[in-house]
Computed example of a mutant assay.
Amino acid sequence: MPVSRTFREEPGRGGPGPAARLLPGLLTAAAALTAAFLVHSLVPVLPAMTLAVVLGILAANLPGAGVWTAGRARPGLDFAGKHLMRGGIVLLGLKVSIMDVLGLGWLALVLIVAVVAVSFGGTYLVSRLFRLPPVTSLLVATGFSICGASAIGAMAAVRRIRHVDTVLPVALVTLCGTLAIGVLPLFVHPLQLTAPVFGAWTGASVHDVGQVVATAQTAGTAALGIAVVVKLTRVLLLAPVAALAGAHQRLAPQAAGTADGTHASLPPVVPLFVLGFVAMVGLRSTGWLAPGWLEAGGVMQDILLGAALFGLGSAVRIRTLLHTGARALLAALVSWLLIALLGLGAALLIAA
């Protein structure tokens, strides 16, 4: 009886090796990222990172492109969503200077930490009240309270959460962050907000760094300056939150062993890429790096995170999202309102 030959061939036996399997997806991400940067250069109010997610979602749901992103391109896109995301998080540290953070003053630092803590706990509680799974609730709370998709990727790595489970939280945090770009500036005149107050509010409540810049710049350079520093202070909290999550994972009862009595390997308290993020923060804070190096690091960070966000967006199926994500969307909107109110209260005190 003849032995059938499977379609998949092993590397070294005539089939594509690991690099060849990743190449179609990585090239697709590179092409999409080029388009995102081009649109951003033409319409600066649209952040390139947000455009990368949107292009990924479009690619996943257009008939011809959907077959490609779910087929040959999928291994490379998954690689980008996981591993390039971690590289981008490391380089994100080059944007954070401890001197800038301390320059806000101790009251501002306490308020920002309080906003992040209450936002995290409140968003997790709201998500659970809307009956979202614990894993989804944790990722949504992390992304909304700290720094969007980057924080979601970090938390997923620390808690060893499956890549597929990050797709919905990334879509929600991108949607609400994009919503902030258009909505928050509408409240400047009705609430009679000064530029520093609006900037602090944006930095304390908008999710992604690019979205913060796009929102704050509508009120001028004074708003943009404080918005970026407040936001990067929230980004700095990624390291301690990741460390706490890693410690909790190791102390959890299920971490000691598996259902069959064998011992599972424990995740590190702080993953290497989070330590890399901290190291980059320290390097930036020394002042040793010339502006050219910082600019190059920023460009590389945008490339890595943009490719990762396109990869994550390309896994979002609108039809599935509409069927399973209605409760998640409501939870995200309620959480977004909660964080906006907390951020406004803190901004009024920070910029008073």
Rank of each mutant, 00 (worst) to 15 (best):
P16M: 12
V228M: 02
P2I: 06
G287K: 02
V164L: 12
M280L: 11
T320Q: 14
P11H: 12
A149S: 13
A328C: 07
S97R: 11
K95E: 05
P133W: 02
V54P: 09
A19I: 11
A252H: 07
V45M: 12
V316F: 14
T69W: 03
G12I: 03
L329A: 12
I89H: 00
G311L: 07
Q211C: 09
L46C: 10
S4V: 13
L330C: 15
T194R: 09
L344V: 00
G210I: 03
T34R: 04
T50Y: 05
I98T: 14
R319K: 10
L333R: 01
L22D: 03
A195D: 11
I57T: 11
A36K: 07
L42P: 08
V274N: 11
A332F: 00
A52I: 07
L344K: 03
G182H: 09
L193K: 08
V39H: 10
H40E: 14
V115E: 07
F37L: 15
V334D: 03
L23K: 05
L168K: 13
A279K: 05
L46V: 13
T218Y: 11
W336V: 02
G292T: 03
G345S: 06
H83Q: 14
S119M: 04
G220L: 01
D208A: 13
L84K: 12
L84W: 11
S314D: 08
L232F: 02
G56C: 07
V281C: 13
L172M: 15
V213Y: 10
L62C: 07
A36S: 14
L91I: 05
V270G: 12
V212P: 01
G15Y: 08
L232N: 07
A245C: 14
A141T: 02
L237Y: 08
G87F: 04
V45E: 13
W288A: 14
H163C: 10
D165P: 03
L55D: 09
A195T: 08
A31S: 09
L348F: 04
A255Q: 01
R21M: 01
T320I: 13
L102F: 09
I303A: 15
T286E: 05
G203T: 00
P291F: 00
I146R: 00
G325Q: 10
L22M: 00
F310D: 06
L92S: 04
G148S: 02
D260V: 03
L244A: 15
L333C: 02
V110F: 06
P63I: 02
Q192H: 14
S97Q: 10
